[in-house]
Simulated assay, not measured.
Amino acid sequence: MASKTVTKASARERLLEAADELFYREGVQTVGIDRVIEHAGVAKASLYNTFGSKEDLICAYLELRNVRIKDRITRTLTRFRAPHEQLLGVFDALGEAITDPEYNGCAFVRATAETADDSSIRRVANNYRLWVRGLFRELAEASGYAAPDELARQLHLLYDGAGQSARMDHDPSAATTARAAAASLLASAPLADNSIEGRQAARRAAGSP
């Protein structure tokens, strides 16, 4: 019987996985390069040849987190057919993250708290936040709300607050609470089409009679 060939992870993959585990658990500044290298089981030269610097490694770690969050949200939103339902579905995706036993808050908030304002790390974090805000805006506009920019900002604040509460207060139900608040917000938000049908659709999405 032929044996299966096991593909060994590349140095880049091993370094990223080590950084993801250590940086997220302990902080990007607390963890030194030597610990990442040791955890990954690679030569020191591999890190600098692959990423160039610790800051570049941190950026790559955050980009990895970004991709995984987007994938989780996108996958969750496929459960819902209408944009006004997907607005609340974003909070369901957040709930999946919050209830993970290894949840340790928002990786982007934690990383930027330890870095300078002009750091490339902050730019990566800002790109992630722009994506989340843009998703809320896109769904709000597709749902027919009159002020999608304002509504997106309000929903983003609820999203951020739930993540912070989950970590600071050890509250695994924070996303559920934020979802309920978002539902109330959507039920009262003005619609571009203020018809009875439009209002009823918004109320159904928010879980109101």
Rank of each mutant, 00 (worst) to 15 (best):
R129Y: 04
Q154V: 07
A178R: 07
V109Y: 03
T177M: 08
T176R: 15
R129T: 14
A125T: 09
I98E: 08
A125P: 05
A147Q: 15
D160M: 15
A111S: 14
T99I: 09
L151H: 10
D160R: 15
T78E: 15
L94H: 01
R137F: 02
A82L: 04
Y145M: 05
L158W: 09
P148C: 07
G95R: 09
L139C: 07
E197R: 11
G198I: 06
T74S: 11
A192W: 07
A174P: 12
R153P: 06
R65F: 03
A202Q: 05
A202W: 00
N127R: 13
V90Y: 00
P101V: 04
A180E: 14
S173V: 00
A147F: 03
F108H: 12
Q164G: 07
I58T: 08
I196H: 10
S173N: 12
N126I: 13
S173G: 04
A201W: 06
Y103R: 07
L151D: 04
G134A: 04
S119K: 03
A201N: 09
L77M: 12
L155E: 12
G105S: 06
R72E: 10
M168K: 13
L62G: 04
P83N: 03
L94E: 02
R167Q: 03
A113G: 05
Y128K: 14
G163I: 09
A146C: 08
D117V: 11
S120F: 08
Y128C: 02
T99H: 08
P83Y: 04
G95D: 13
A183R: 10
A175K: 01
E96D: 09
R167Y: 10
E150L: 01
G105Y: 02
C106W: 03
